[in-house]
């Protein structure tokens, strides 16, 4: 098991109902995509947040990351909708 901090933004944060949390990940959760699949089973808010996971973006330790990116040695995982700044 590895412990990570999960942080959520915009409507992902609203649906989950938390800004951040610490989680111990099961050994078979090794990538961003596997983490999203695992989180979907953690309650209705998570299921709603990740229902259309093709639009959700992730960052690993503050850097954009694709779904197949490895979580090895990662301390902070962020999930958010497409950005809309500027």
């Amino acid at each position: 098991m590895s412990r990570v901090t999960l942080v959520y933004f915009a409507w992902v944060r609203e649906r989950i109902g938390k800004r951040f949390e610490q989680r111990d990940l099961p050994a078979d959760v090794r990538t961003v995509g596997e983490l999203m699949d695992w989180l979907k089973g953690q309650g209705a808010g998570y299921a709603a947040a990740f229902a259309d996971d093709s639009v959700i973006q992730a960052a690993l330790d503050y850097v954009h990351a694709p779904k197949d990116a490895s979580l090895e040695n990662v301390r902070e995982v962020a999930f958010f909708p497409p950005v809309s700044g500027g």
Partner: peptide, 13 residues
Amino acid sequence: MDHLKTDAPFWKR
């Protein structure tokens, strides 16, 4: 601007 719009983590409500 083009890169900021797609990459910088800001969300408008």
